[in-house]
Computed example of a mutant assay.
Amino acid sequence: MRRTSFEDLECPIARSLEHVGEWWSILIMRDAFDGFTRFDQFERSLAIAPNMLTRRLKSLVDAGLLERRRYQDRPPRHEYVLTETGRALRPVILALYAWGNQDLAPGDRSLVLVDRATGREVEPVLVDRATGVPLSDLDIGFVAGPSASEPFRDRLADAAAAAGRPAT
């Protein structure tokens, strides 16, 4: 069964899921942020079938999140290195970490985020860049951007109406 592609959808969340919406992809990216670069490292860390790992790595390379580089000629071996686009996913991974620790396993954390330089525990918080106010403290919502199509604007207006908010 062929899955639906989100590549051409206007919603940036849907487009993002096109590249990292499969759970192995997020876990591979997590491991890449931890410093893993080689196939056997990912395979061992994730206990993932080699054929699945091959597909997911290819998908992440095709999406521009990882770069495949040869590190050995005989036999040919490659490593997978984060690209600039891949490194930009880090705040999303950290937000998932924070949500998972806070809301899914509070008080029973098996993973703690620390500042490597000081060892001090770090608690990620998403903030508005302009004001520094945590997003959780704001009443925020999605509105149509300048390039939104009419159908997309209609969808957003329907969502606003369903929530009892004025469409903007």
Rank of each mutant, 00 (worst) to 15 (best):
M1D: 09
S5Y: 04
D8I: 03
C11F: 04
I13P: 00
R15W: 06
S16Q: 13
L17D: 01
V20K: 05
V20W: 03
E22H: 06
W23K: 07
S25H: 14
S25N: 10
M29V: 11
R30C: 09
F33L: 10
D34L: 12
G35C: 04
R38N: 07
R44I: 02
S45W: 02
I48K: 10
A49C: 06
N51D: 14
L57M: 10
K58F: 09
S59M: 07
D62A: 15
A63Y: 10
G64D: 10
L66T: 03
E67S: 15
R68Q: 15
R74G: 01
P75G: 13
Y80P: 00
V81S: 00
L82V: 01
E84W: 01
T85M: 01
G86W: 00
L89A: 11
L94N: 04
A95R: 11
A95P: 00
A95H: 14
L96I: 10
Y97C: 02
Y97L: 15
N101W: 01
L104R: 11
L104M: 13
D108K: 15
D108F: 07
D108P: 01
R109T: 07
S110L: 15
S110Y: 10
L111N: 02
L111T: 11
V114P: 00
D115A: 10
R116F: 05
R116T: 12
E121N: 02
V122E: 10
P124D: 09
V127E: 03
A130E: 13
G132F: 04
G132C: 04
P134M: 06
P134Q: 08
D137H: 03
I140M: 12
I140R: 06
F142N: 13
V143F: 05
P146T: 11
P146N: 11
S149Q: 12
P151N: 10
F152K: 09
A157C: 04
A162T: 07
A163G: 01
G164K: 07
G164S: 11
R165N: 13
P166C: 02
